[in-house]
Design a protein around this nucleic acid. Structure first.
Length: 431
RNA sequence: GGAGAGGUGGCUGAGUGGUCGAAAGCACCGCACUCGAAAUGCGGCGUACCUUUACGGGUACCGUGGGUUCGAAUCCCACCCUCUCCGCCA
């Protein structure tokens, strides 16, 4: 959500920002917003003047009645009756214009930060660094490393058929060692973020209402990506929704910032726009677990926090010795609410490519405005919007994929990364 | 799911149609008193928006959204939330 005053003050900045994100006719969109805003304020001013007169008259009526001056009361009431007709019109106009303005503002994405590179799609993303050497892992010695589906099914621990019989496509059943691996990864990731990185573990609702999803930016534009449950609830597509909304409609003491929270939750996505993509395997599922990080900061802190959060996610990959690279997303490839995003991509030897496994975004005050989340210094006057950040550390399904593929040997046996062995009752291998 | 009670400013809490944005107390800030502090006294102390060069002026907000009325914290309707009891349930 955008501050209409800021748009009014610097139209060019918004035209630039939105067109760089691929919005057609940004100039027209901005001009339209400014125009609606101007009309709205004109109506407001006129309406408020009329209300002021009505309030004065109503007081005078009260006094006249108290003094038994019925004649004067009647003449005042006649005056107000005329005024009311005008006010009704203005009131309707104010409501219409206000809604029109909000609708426009709510459907426009965040502006990219200044240091975000230009680009229309993922080809414009900029690689920032590569960490880890794929050749150093067991799969690095193989000529034709298998993909995770082949590995998992050969182990008898990954069953897409059973899942599809009960739930359809994009679900999986894990069994035995792989089911345990999923659980181990969740524990491992939560422990790392809470014990080493100072995040507070949270257990949060997985069903939320419209307002929460509006706050983080999934609604109103992306309803088709979500699952709706019953009349008024949605399944969360990420714990970002539940964690970030913890500060909605709150004024947080700045001394308490930054707030760092983590939660391990299932995530539910309809993948409506992805039909045909990643249909094989566990890469793109309707349901997957994710260890999510959310930070709430002051405006001054968010840039440094973004780097810190990304490092907290990278540390998970480094501790599992999984090779990855960090990408700075270009303007055209960022999500709706982000002003700057780093993606972490993990090496998948079967495909010989890096695939997204984490996304860490600084949303600035974009989400805070949508959910009215403020902060203030105790004792000082005035509040301002907090900044919110979120990152995956990590998505469990894709981590399983990466471990299977990178830690396979020629027999299809999977070595367990040493950091994970304590969480696997000391086992060194699966299979 | 059924029955009942209730949602007022940072907190407690008065207020059932006419200077109510809202008494009072607590908390907080300033001043006075004091060497200093406590106590006491005096004053201040919500948010958002519109408007104004500025000083200021105005509008809205008493859970949310509608309605009645010249006028609503107060009356009516719907919804949300909290609490108590009953039923059901992991």
């Amino acid at each position: 959500m955008h501050d209409v005053k800021a748009i009014r003050d610097d139209e060019a900045r918004y035209v630039r920002g939105w067109s760089s994100r691929g919005l057609a006719e940004a100039e027209k969109v901005v001009g339209d917003i400014v125009d609606v805003d101007r009309q709205l304020r004109a109506v407001q001013t006129a309406l408020q003047a009329a209300q002021s007169r009505r309030n004065d008259a109503s007081k005078a009526i009260g006094q006249a009645k108290a003094q038994k001056d019925e004649e004067r009361a009647q003449s005042l009431m006649a005056e107000v009756a005329i005024l009311k007709a005008q006010m009704d019109e203005m009131f309707v106009a104010e409501g219409d214009l206000g809604r029109a303005l909000k609708e426009r503002l709510a459907s426009l994405p965040n502006l990219p930060a200044d240091d975000v590179p230009d680009g229309a799609d993922e080809h414009g993303n900029v690689e920032q660094k590569r960490v880890g050497d794929p050749a150093s892992l067991p799969a690095g010695r193989l000529n034709a490393p298998k993909d995770h589906v082949a590995l998992g099914e050969a182990l008898g621990m990954m069953d897409f058929e059973s899942a599809s019989r009960m739930s359809g496509a994009r679900f999986v059943v894990l069994k035995g060692g792989l089911a345990r691996l999923k659980r181990a990864l969740g524990q491992f990731m939560l422990d790392m973020q809470t014990i080493q990185h100072g995040y507070t573990e949270m257990s949060v609702p997985m069903l939320v209402r419209d307002e929460a999803l509006f706050g983080t930016g999934q609604l109103p534009k992306f309803a088709e990506d979500l699952f709706k449950v019953g009349e008024e609830h949605w399944l969360i597509p990420t714990a970002e929704v539940s964690l970030t909304n913890l500060v909605r409609e709150q004024i947080t003491d700045e001394a308490a910032l930054p707030i760092r929270m983590t939660a391990l939750t299932p995530c539910f996505r309809s993948e409506a726009g992805a039909s045909g993509r990643d249909t094989r395997g566990m890469i793109r599922q309707h349901q997957f677990f994710k260890c999510e990080l959310v930070s709430v900061t002051t405006p001054e802190q968010s840039d440094a926090e973004h780097e810190r959060m990304t490092r907290c996610a990278e540390t998970v990959l480094e501790t599992l010795a999984l090779p990855y690279r960090r990408m700075l997303l270009c303007k055209g490839d960022m999500g709706f609410s982000a002003q700057k995003t780093f993606d972490l991509e993990v090496w998948l030897p079967s495909q010989g490519v890096y695939r997204e496994i984490s996304s860490c975004s600084n949303c600035g005050d974009f989400q805070a405005r949508r959910m009215d989340a403020r902060c203030k210094t105790a004792g000082e006057k005035g509040s301002r919007f907090v900044h919110t950040l979120n990152g995956s550390a990590l998505a469990l399904g894709r981590t399983i994929v990466a471990i299977l593929e990178n830690y396979q040997d020629e027999t299809g046996r999977i070595a367990i990364p040493s950091a994970l062995q304590p969480y696997m009752a000391g086992a060194t291998h699966i299979g």
